[in-house]
Design a protein around this nucleic acid. Sequence first.
DNA 1: ATATGTGAACCATTTCACAGCA
DNA 2: TGCTGTGAAATGGTTCACATAT
Lengths: 221, 221
Amino acid sequence: MPRKICSEKACFPIDAIKRLVGYYRDLKHLKEKGVNVISSFSLSEILGVSPEQIRKDLSYLGEFGKRGVGYDVEHLIKNLEDRLTIVRPSNAVICGVGRLGMALMGYAGFRDLNIRISAGFDVDEAKIGMEVAGIKVYHLRHLVKVCKRIHPEVAIISVPASYAQDVCDRIISVGVRGILNFAPVSLSVPNDIFISNVDLSVELGALLFCTRMGEAGGAKG
Amino acid sequence: MPRKICSEKACFPIDAIKRLVGYYRDLKHLKEKGVNVISSFSLSEILGVSPEQIRKDLSYLGEFGKRGVGYDVEHLIKNLEDRLTIVRPSNAVICGVGRLGMALMGYAGFRDLNIRISAGFDVDEAKIGMEVAGIKVYHLRHLVKVCKRIHPEVAIISVPASYAQDVCDRIISVGVRGILNFAPVSLSVPNDIFISNVDLSVELGALLFCTRMGEAGGAKG
DNA sequence: ATATGTGAACCATTTCACAGCA
DNA sequence: TGCTGTGAAATGGTTCACATAT
């Protein structure tokens, strides 16, 4: 993934986008709790992000607040849904129905973003034809055929590392332009394809290193 | 998590640490394939990171290459294991043995970093006493007692969002200083605790947004 | 009075360019 | 000559400070 993303109109940092998606989710929780108006300062405490950062992030998408007052929660949610294109539903597929793949098929959080997991793929004959969380599992050899019907916008790769590049290539060949990769390898893709790596052992390894370094020194940030 | 981490000797960026852990993993694959010496330029193609970036990242930990030649793969691996403290084994625990928690208990990648998942915790009586991938599941109410025996350095939180802060507090109370959080909420922790959030729907949502923006514009980075 | 929105200042990381060494 | 290691320059995200609006 690049560090920032641009259209003709504007550029903004990927990290800002991720934070904004997080704001959206937490704002929905706030609304359920009956909060109608909130300032960037109060939001700051809930989100663990500075008020200036929140305001700057929101300003990438437009002006949604009232000066001297704050943000109308519902209005802000609606605008985030619109600008982040959450209103527009999407299909996704999962390649690799192992333990992790199955967990992702049942992950409720995707639905909140209007993302529907429409199919799973695996090579294990025992799994073909199964339904996991209401999602049908197909053989990987039918990937192209099934995807031509489903038209997934994004794909999740949760196959073993050694299969990942092959699956990745085939996913791209059916027109998928965004890939969330859980396989612990660096995949090579054309530079019009977005690939985001969630590397669990890298995360845990880096965390462990930090705590051990912290023992002797301390974090500064 | 802060942006950088410091000891008395040096400071370096968290992102560099994460990349280094990734280099370590990919170098081990390379070694298995019989590669003995490699330049930062060849590594660049495999890792998808620029040669300068690789050299700079490595330079945070020391000087491991031979000018005019490249890096001895085995020598580099040994040094990374040493400097990233991967040689030193660690225990971790997982709080929340749902679908995701179970997947993580069986995740092979942790073992490659000498990280051992030593216990799982849940509140579901049906799961208590179970073994998942050889790891015993305890009731959450015994968290403190079991952790005092195991001495985990890091913990993984994969409980529902509403339980996460409570579990987090208790984990910290037994001396854990690093937390990998999968619950989709911002947790508040003292600032000597390292917490890394893996937010699956945020990742997928941001990815989707990028592909949709990319349709009209294009990535620059 | 209060809180937003934003250009400017700041600061960290990435990239560059080249000195240093095999 | 070839590739590493690293100060210096550039890039770009975050923080600051304040003008602006209610």
